[in-house]
Amino acid sequence: MLDTPLRNIAMLTGFAWKQDGQWVLQQRAPLPMALPLRLSEGVREPEMGEPIDVIGRVDAHDGLHIAVTHLSRAAKSSFPQKLKWAVRGIPTRDKDGVKNVTDRHVEGLIAPAIADMLLPQRTIPDAVRRQCDADMDLAAWVDEGLREPIHLPNRIMLTGMVENVITCDNLYATRPERARYFDVLIRTEPAPAPPVVCRLTADVHRFVYMAKLLQQTRKTGNPITLCGEFRAKVIPVDEGDGILRIDYHVRLLDALSATQEDMPNGVPDWAHKIA
């Protein structure tokens, strides 16, 4: 949904920043970890450094990004009272971006200059409300997302077909149980549109169950519903302080066999050809 045959919705909050002509959403201090955005036709451009709520879908055309269909000034409910802005172990290689997000005098609290910019309430566009009326699970998920207590919201919900499950070696693992992860290709729309890259890592709750379910649905061709968050994995060069590449993916947090209620419009014909 949101312009895809199967459910595909993203809800995120952060700070708008533009670099090299590309809008990104900054949710963490290191700017290389910012998440790429593409504004759909009719969506206003934000101000540099503006706290924003965005709703859209995950799109893999020309690189994974959030196709933003709704953008508004962020609401107070989108920001927890305490916010961990820095990320341990990842240096801020680029000094640009949003600064002084948290109060210097009370660690973790939102800085007054940021808090004063936030709206009293979050706005949900009519298109999303109409989808929620036809999809009760989606309605509950959207409502839950408005009450994020700890982190800036970063929530993805997909219903799609598992095109492939790829086992990958984690060269940066510090524990044996994290030596491997799975990259999962999920299709929410037919080819030639590229699939969405999702990643399942061993530190996730129900990892074993999710891995088995993904492999099973790949073999049976049954649809699956996934919940996760949009992430940027910064890969450093072997030596020095540079960046080799940035891998964008949906980090999986939960997976369930899709039900009829997950697909109000039914399973599209192309989906039966994935298995």
Score class of each variant (00 low, 15 high):
Asp59Lys: 02
Asp126Arg: 14
Glu50Trp: 06
Gln121Pro: 05
Ala113Cys: 01
His105Cys: 00
Val58Ile: 15
Cys168Ala: 06
Asp133Tyr: 10
His61Ile: 13
Ala60Cys: 12
Gly108Arg: 04
Gly89Ala: 07
Ile114Trp: 04
Leu83Met: 10
Asn154Thr: 04
Gly108Phe: 00
Val98Cys: 03
Thr167Gln: 12
Gly49Cys: 03
Glu148Cys: 13
Arg104Ser: 09
His70Leu: 02
Asn154Ser: 07
Thr123Asn: 02
Thr167Asp: 11
Ala115Glu: 10
Asp116Cys: 08
Gly89Pro: 03
Ile90Asp: 10
Asn164Phe: 04
Thr92Lys: 13
Arg147Glu: 15
Asp59Asn: 13
Asn164Trp: 12
Asp94Val: 11
Val101Asp: 03
Leu118Trp: 08
Ser72Leu: 04
Gly89Val: 12
Ala75Ser: 06
Pro80Phe: 05
Ala127Leu: 13
Ala67Phe: 02
Ala111Phe: 02
Thr92Arg: 15
Ile150Phe: 14
Gly89Phe: 12
Met161Trp: 01
Val98Tyr: 01
Glu148Gln: 06
Leu71Asn: 06
Pro125Tyr: 13
Ile55His: 06
Arg88Met: 07
Pro91Lys: 09
Arg155Glu: 12
Glu47Val: 06
Pro120Leu: 10
Ser77Glu: 13
Ile150Arg: 13
Asp59Thr: 03
Lys76Gln: 12
Thr102Gly: 04
Arg130Asp: 15
Ala67Tyr: 05
His65Phe: 01
Gly145Tyr: 09
Arg122Lys: 08
Asn100Ala: 14
Gln131Lys: 09
Val142Pro: 03
Ile55Leu: 13
Ile156Leu: 09
Val58Gln: 06
Pro51Thr: 05
Val98Asn: 02
Asp169Lys: 12
Pro153Tyr: 06
His61Met: 13
Pro153Thr: 15
Lys99Cys: 10
Pro112Leu: 05
Pro80Lys: 04
Arg104His: 12
Met136Gln: 14
Val68Lys: 04
Met136Gly: 10
Ala127Met: 14
Val165Ser: 09
Asp143Ala: 15
Pro153Val: 14
Arg122His: 07
Val101Leu: 02
Arg122Asn: 00
Ala74Met: 01
Ala60Ile: 08
Arg88Ala: 13
Gly49Gln: 11
Ala74Lys: 02
Gln121Val: 05
Thr69Trp: 00
Arg129Gln: 15
Gly56Arg: 00
His61Asp: 08
Asp94Pro: 09
Leu64Asn: 02
Asp133Val: 14
Asp169Gly: 01
Asp59Cys: 08
Lys99His: 10
Ser40Val: 08
Val128Asp: 01
Ser40Arg: 13
Pro153Arg: 11
Leu158Asn: 10
Gly49Thr: 05
Asp133Glu: 15
Ser40Leu: 11
Ile55Asp: 04
Gly49Pro: 06
Leu158Gln: 01
Trp141Arg: 00
Arg122Cys: 04
Arg147Cys: 12
Cys132Leu: 01
